[in-house]
């Protein structure tokens, strides 16, 4: 064998050895890859198992085995949720009660205001026996408590049957015509002893003298002694309030007795003064 053949033989033998080594490495790599794939498969199966368990636990929280801690926590959550629902229901009840109390408070305040008005009107009407003062107090009540700007107090002359304006506000008494009982709106209100409320008053104030906004007969028992007539309300008073009708009722009775008794008292006082003067003359 020549040197060159020898060298070729050695080279081939080296290549075979390398090939064997490479093949061995490839086999080991293949085994390792298979091991990895198996481990991967095992782990994926385990993950799937755990996910399934978790899903079951979440879907059925009240069933299945649990540990003591999670049992206790779930119980607490349930109790808190129940308490929260109770508190929410109570809050709703309290809110409803609150609205109710607020409305009642407004009603009570309104009643309080009305009672104060009625008390003051009644108190003032009977606070004096002076005829002029009584008329002035009636005017004040109608201006300040009812809110009328133009109005009159008619008194009946029983002998003639004529209703004449005795006091007026917002207009001179001379401009208000006297009325015969039974005639027109005012005379009819006096004759029938029925209050009159005009819901469609004339725009012209002068026309309201024969057809007022309101006529309130002044009565003692069934005897009419006069009429209060309202022609115009104050600018800021748009309509009558419920208390105004209570005040009309109060005025119908109390103003009548106050006028009647003060007139009697004033006449008696005048007569007493006359008699006293006469007696003084006699005793001299």
């Amino acid at each position: 064998m020549s040197d060159s053949e020898k060298t070729d033989q050695e080279k081939k033998s080296g290549i075979f050895e390398k090939g064997e080594e490479f093949l061995e490495m490839f086999r080991k790599g293949q085994e390792f890859t298979h091991d990895l794939l198996r481990e991967n498969e095992r782990l994926r199966y385990r993950v799937a198992q755990l996910e399934e368990n978790l899903k079951q636990k979440l879907e059925a929280p009240d069933s299945g085995p649990r540990d003591a801690g999670s049992e206790d926590a779930a119980g607490k959550i349930a109790r808190y949720e129940k308490r929260l629902a109770e508190l929410e229901a109570r809050l709703k009840e309290m809110e409803a009660e609150n609205v109710d109390f607020a409305q009642r408070y407004i009603d009570v305040e309104e009643q309080n205001n009305n009672l104060a008005n009625l008390y003051v009107a009644s108190y003032q009407l009977h606070s004096t026996l002076d005829y002029e003062d009584v008329l002035q107090i009636i005017l004040e009540i109608i201006i300040n408590l009812i809110g009328a700007e133009t109005f009159a107090i008619y008194l009946l002359d029983e002998k003639t049957g004529i209703l004449s304006p005795e006091a007026a506000e917002g207009i001179s008494r001379d401009q208000i015509p006297s009325v015969k009982i039974g005639e027109g709106v005012i005379g009819s209100a006096a004759q029938s002893n029925q209050s009159y409320f005009n819901e469609n008053p004339h725009q012209d104030l002068k026309k309201r003298f024969s057809d007022p906004l309101v006529c309130i007969p002044l009565t003692i028992k069934d005897d009419v002694i006069g009429v209060i007539t309202l022609y115009k309300l104050l600018q800021q008073k748009e309509r009558f309030a419920p208390v105004d009708f209570e005040l009309f009722t109060l005025l119908a009775g109390h103003a009548a007795t106050a006028i009647f008794s003060s007139r009697l008292f004033t006449e008696s006082k005048r007569k007493l003064t006359t008699f006293q003067g006469f007696l003084d003359l006699l005793s001299q």
């Binding site: 104060a116 008005n117 008390y119 108190y123 003032q124 107090i137 004040e140 300040n144 408590l145």
Partner: peptide
């Protein structure tokens, strides 16, 4: 007005 004075006092 005594009427108003009384009402305001109230």
């Amino acid at each position: 007005s005594p009427t108003m004075r009384q009402l305001i006092r109230f």
